[in-house]
């Protein structure tokens, strides 16, 4: 995919709306300290306040400011998405290109290894590992990368196998190009579309998994998370009997949906969908 095409495609209605949502979340995440004066962990006021000018979305059952939790939660979600997707991308692409390009028995062994990883059901393993390891954000990121890279490697390897026997690679070899040149100039550029898809898909997966684990109580309590917010809101017995769910439960859910939606829109726009 050429730079021009990428820009053109992102200029479609889907691309623009996706980017707009994504950028506003990034802005919120970066500017969180300036947008709210409360720290997300501080017990800043009386519990269960309704929204007012000081607490835009009120407070939760222990008196923390919901609005600032929401802002700092964006940080967590985006950071997890960024680290996991780039981790999967780097490891997956390296492994896939290496395996596909080398071929032969090494390729066979590596792909069987990948198959084993792919056979293990994702969520149960994450649950078990998250339960055994200390619940920390870095453990979650680690697990998501470990479970995610085989998918990237598989797709990258398939594409590399096709490219390795294509005419332009043959031509470069005949002209005297070494392996490194072929990989750098002929294989990796052709993998860009796959890489973009990997980033988008893995970001979505990371955001949903992180929130999901936090919701199940396996998240990192030291980082504010939308999943944790939903968990506390739901476990508060009276949340649905008062209006509290409107500012306590719903905003976090809406944020998760919107952030995932923005990635989906950007991904679809990059695939040429208008």
């Amino acid at each position: 995919m050429h730079e021009i095409t990428v820009v053109q495609r992102l200029k479609s209605p889907k691309g623009i709306s996706g980017l707009a949502i994504l950028c506003s979340f990034i802005f919120i995440a970066i500017a969180a300290p300036f947008l709210t004066s409360y720290s997300p962990d501080d017990i800043s006021s009386r519990p269960l306040l309704e929204p007012n000018s000081e607490h835009l979305l009120g407070t939760d059952d222990v008196g923390r400011d919901i609005f600032s939790n929401l802002l700092y939660g964006a940080r967590t979600s985006l950071a997890v998405a960024l680290i996991v997707s780039s981790g999967v991308l780097i490891i997956g692409t390296l492994a896939g290109v290496f395996s596909g390009y080398t071929g032969g028995n090494l390729d066979r062994v590596m792909m069987r290894g990948v198959d084993i990883f792919l056979m293990i059901p994702d969520l149960p393993l994450i649950l078990i590992l998250a339960a055994y390891l200390r619940p920390s954000l870095w453990n979650i990121i680690f697990i998501l990368i470990v479970m995610g890279w085989p998918v990237g490697a598989r797709i990258t390897r398939a594409q590399t196998r096709t490219l390795r026997v294509s005419g332009h690679v043959d031509f470069a070899r005949i002209s005297g190009a070494g392996n490194w040149y072929v990989i750098k100039r002929h294989i990796v550029p052709d993998l860009y579309p796959i890489m973009i898809t990997t980033i988008v898909m893995q970001s979505i997966r990371a955001i949903l998994s992180e929130s999901g684990l936090a919701f199940l109580g396996l998240g990192d309590p030291s980082y504010p998370s939308w999943g944790t917010m939903i968990k506390y809101a739901i476990s508060y017995p009276l949340v649905f009997f008062t209006d509290a769910w409107m500012w306590w439960l719903m905003p976090a859910g809406v944020c998760i949906t919107l952030l995932v939606l923005s990635f989906v829109l950007v991904g679809q726009a990059l695939e040429g969908d208008k």
Binding site: G167, H168, D170, S175
Partner: peptide, 13 residues
């Protein structure tokens, strides 16, 4: 020795 391939779509990146 250089080469010109059959398929001009596949042989040019």
């Amino acid at each position: 020795v250089q080469v010109i391939f059959q398929d001009p779509y596949d042989s040019l990146s």
